[in-house]
Amino acid sequence: MAVSGGEKNIPSSNIPTDDRMEWVPLALTLVEYPQGDWLGKMFALASLMPFGIIAGFVALVLFRRDLHTIAFFIGTMVNELINLILKHTICEARPMHRNGLYTEYGMPSSHSQFMWFFAVYVVFFVFIRLHHMNNSTVLENVWKTAIILSCISMATMVTVSRVYLQYHTWKQVLSGCLVGVIFAAIWFAVTHLFLTPLFPIVASWRASEFLMLRDTTLIPNVLWFEYTNSRQESRARGRKLVSMKSQ
Rank of each mutant, 00 (worst) to 15 (best):
N141I: 08
M96Y: 04
F117Q: 01
E92Q: 13
S150W: 14
W116H: 11
E104Q: 01
R98Y: 03
F118A: 06
F125R: 07
S110F: 00
I152A: 10
F124A: 04
N99V: 11
I128H: 08
S153N: 12
R129N: 11
H131P: 07
T145N: 13
W143G: 06
V123Y: 00
V126N: 04
E140G: 08
G100L: 08
M96G: 08
I90F: 13
R98K: 04
S153K: 12
P108V: 01
K144I: 05
M96I: 13
M96C: 12
H97A: 12
I148L: 03
N135H: 13
H131C: 09
W116Y: 07
V123L: 00
K144Y: 10
T89S: 15
W116F: 14
T137Q: 14
I148M: 12
A119I: 03
C91W: 02
M96N: 03
V126I: 08
T89Y: 14
C91D: 14
N134R: 13
A93V: 12
E104S: 09
S153T: 15
P95S: 04
E140K: 09
F124G: 06
H132A: 04
S136M: 07
N134V: 03
H132N: 04
L101F: 15
H111T: 00
A93N: 05
W116A: 05
S109I: 09
M107H: 13
P95G: 11
M107K: 08
S136W: 02
Y102S: 10
P95V: 01
M96F: 07
A146L: 09
N141L: 07
F127H: 09
I128P: 08
F118G: 01
E140V: 00
H97V: 04
C91I: 11
I128W: 12
T137E: 15
S136N: 11
F118I: 05
M107E: 01
H132D: 08
K144M: 14
T103L: 01
S136P: 11
H131N: 06
N141A: 13
W116L: 06
S150V: 13
L130W: 06
N134L: 07
I147Q: 01
S112R: 01
L139T: 02
H97M: 09
S150P: 04
A146F: 03
F114N: 00
F114G: 09
V120N: 00
S112Q: 10
A93T: 14
L101K: 15
S110T: 10
V122T: 14
R94C: 08
L101E: 15
Y121F: 04
H132L: 03
C151R: 02
V120C: 00
M115V: 03
V126C: 00
N134Q: 11
F114W: 06
Q113F: 03
K144T: 13
A119Y: 02
V142Q: 13
N99W: 15
F124T: 02
H111S: 10
F117C: 04
L130T: 12
S110P: 10
L101Y: 14
C151G: 05
W116E: 07
I152S: 14
H88D: 03
